[in-house]
């Protein structure tokens, strides 16, 4: 099933001579269980695309559908609920709340969605444990390394029953081992049925995706063919 669909989405910032065409007629779909990477250079519109897909920003033209429902037709409340409940978002700069511990950062979206504190915190702790961060649950963001902060941000994005995971340069300034660890986590979420979009300029990150869409100057210019499953690539066991 399609979890995300963009239909001829355009975004113009500013007006008159200051006009910036950040996105132009972008169409794409993401199915559940599928990981799509959007690859493009700096300024090509990657973050713009992701904030619009995450309903954090409205397109100038075009439509966004999440789980088949058009976002433009929703009330503010419905949209906020969709964001809390169905969409996990990993920001380019992690965006953890400095005054909350790692565990509280992760359980916050559940509590905001009405889950009582205790089960929410238990679910948050479980998500951190799965990412190997159980021991750091009580630490505040400024007591964590960059890689650990990134994992907390991912735990927060996958906790609960999310259907769509959106990640903006999820390995940021991490080294390649940590970048790989982050992509394995995102792949694991997709294997459990979540649809994922990763936007990045980094080909190694993008190569974890089932499909890579190339963005240039706000337009989709190309995409890779879906790759065959691992069975056909691996040599038979000797």
């Amino acid at each position: 099933m399609t979890v995300l669909e963009l239909r001829e989405v355009s975004k113009v910032y500013g007006d008159g001579p200051a006009e910036v065409h950040a996105l132009a007629d972008v169409s794409m779909t993401v199915d559940d269980g599928e990981l799509v990477a959007v690859m493009g250079p700096s300024g090509s519109g990657k973050s713009t695309l992701l904030t619009i897909a995450g309903t954090l920003e409205e397109p100038t033209r075009g439509q966004v559908l999440v789980g088949g429902a058009a976002v433009s037709g929703m009330s503010r409340n419905d949209r906020a609920r969709l964001r809390r409940r169905s969409i996990g978002y990993v920001f380019q700069d992690f965006n953890l709340l400095a005054g909350l511990t790692a565990a509280e950062n992760v359980s916050l979206p559940l509590e905001l969605d009405g889950m009582p504190g205790k089960p929410a915190r238990a679910a948050g702790l479980r998500a951190l444990e799965e990412l190997g961060l159980g021991e750091r649950a009580a630490s505040f963001p400024d007591e964590l390394s960059g890689g650990e902060r990134q994992r907390v941000a991912i735990a927060r994005a996958v906790v609960g029953e999310r259907r769509l995971l959106l990640a903006d340069e999820p390995s940021g300034a991490l080294d390649s081992a940590n970048g790989e660890a982050v992509m394995r986590l995102i792949r694991a979420a997709c294997h459990s049925g979540v649809g994922g979009v990763v936007v990045t300029h980094d080909a190694q990150l993008a190569s974890w995706a089932d499909r890579v869409v190339f963005l240039r100057d706000g337009r989709v210019v190309d995409q890779t063919a879906p790759i065959p499953g691992p069975e056909s690539l691996l040599a038979p066991e000797r």
């Binding site: 190694q204 993008a206 190569s207 890779t224 790759i227 065959p228 691992p230």
Partner: peptide, 10 residues
Amino acid sequence: VQLMQEWTRL
């Protein structure tokens, strides 16, 4: 990138 996807899958 397609080649890289195949290696990454392996």
